[in-house]
């Protein structure tokens, strides 16, 4: 088991190298560099930029170097936590991203747990009550949940909460707690705010996962071993939960690798709409302003989160299914 995990970590490292190459490719992709953007705005503000100044700026950002040197410069900073400079914020990228990435992950993982919990219950219910009115109702809700773009849901919920409850959406902490040290009260404050993005993100995830769960369980319920269990005289409830659900779960765990990118994508978009202090707003702002080291670093870390998520899913799967060998 441990050697399996180590080998998986090795593969992850290789993928990671390619991920950083893709990230750097994207950094290099925009036709104009941020520098041109910067010089242009300096000129617009009335200041004249001399060729000397431009050269100084270029040297500072290493723009004169060939591509592979720039890539090396960027990637070699990683172990030191140096991911380059944000032009827009005039601060190192590393300083800007940590807390925001942390909240993105917190919201994503919380959404995953909540939506899976609900989805499994809903999926089991609708699979065991096929062709009944509640099942049809659930199916309709699932379709709608998947059809509403999450940013639209964010907008609608935001308006609803503001208009009916006067709630301030778009913060993780109330003003009095924002800079306060960690405490129970601060946690409770976080919980009272964080459920909004979790609910918005969870709708599509729950709809999708419960559909998958329903289909899996219907598949498993047609398996011979379920009939075997029934033929033993076991109570139907135990047949479902002990013999069927356990087997229906692992295709679901296998889809974890697919669910996580969806949730992170959603978090990035939804937090932009709600203007939460997570990755989303900063990432899109960086893209629009072509602040590419910031955007590229975010992208690399999103990929890291997914890779780790996939690793955890594989380990979970191995625990769930005795047939999987740690080769």
């Amino acid at each position: 088991m441990i050697s399996y995990i180590i080998r998986r970590l090795g593969y992850m490292l290789i993928t990671l190298v390619f991920v950083t190459i893709v990230g750097f490719f994207i950094i290099e992709l925009p036709p104009g560099s941020y520098l041109e953007f910067h010089i242009q705005s300096l000129r617009q503000q009335g200041g004249d930029v001399t060729p000397d100044q431009i050269q100084a700026l270029e040297r500072r950002y290493g723009l004169g170097d060939p591509v592979h040197i720039r890539f090396y410069k960027w990637i070699s900073g990683f172990p030191r936590g140096d991911f380059g400079q944000s032009f827009q914020h005039q601060r190192p990228v590393g300083e800007l991203i940590w807390s925001r990435l942390g909240y993105t992950l917190l919201i994503s993982v919380a959404t995953l747990i909540v939506s899976w919990g609900i989805a499994i219950l809903v999926g089991v219910y609708s699979a065991t009550h096929r062709y009944t009115i509640p099942d049809y109702l659930i199916t309709v809700l699932q379709f709608i949940g998947l059809a509403i773009p999450n940013f639209l849901l964010a907008l609608v919920l935001m308006i609803f909460l503001q208009q009916t409850f006067g709630m301030r959406v778009g913060v993780l902490f109330s003003r009095e707690f924002r800079d306060a040290p960690f405490s129970i009260a601060k946690m409770i404050d976080l919980l009272s705010n964080i459920w909004v993005p979790i609910v918005i993100l969870g709708v599509a995830g729950t709809a999708w996962t419960s559909r998958v769960m329903r289909a899996n369980l219907l598949d498993v319920l047609n398996m011979q071993y379920v009939q075997t269990a029934r033929a033993k005289g076991i109570h139907e409830r135990k047949v479902i939960w002990k013999h069927a659900v356990r087997n229906a779960l692992h295709p679901l765990v296998m889809t974890l690798g697919m669910a996580l990118p969806g949730i992170i994508s959603g978090e990035v978009v939804v937090s932009t709409v709600l203007n939460l202090p997570t990755s989303g707003p900063l990432f899109f702002q960086a893209l629009i302003q072509q602040d590419m080291y910031l955007a590229g670093t975010f992208l690399v870390f999103f990929a890291v989160a997914l890779l780790v998520g996939n690793l955890l899913a594989d380990i979970m799967l191995a625990g769930l299914d005795p047939r999987i060998q740690y080769r």
Partner: peptide, 24 residues
């Protein structure tokens, strides 16, 4: 298969957005 894995290791919307941001 490795190329596909690499593409799938990025969340979709941020990847789309990064590529779209590079359009002139």
């Amino acid at each position: 298969q490795r190329v596909i894995e690499l593409i799938l290791s990025f969340p979709t919307v941020p990847l789309w957005a990064a590529l779209a941001a590079a359009l002139p």
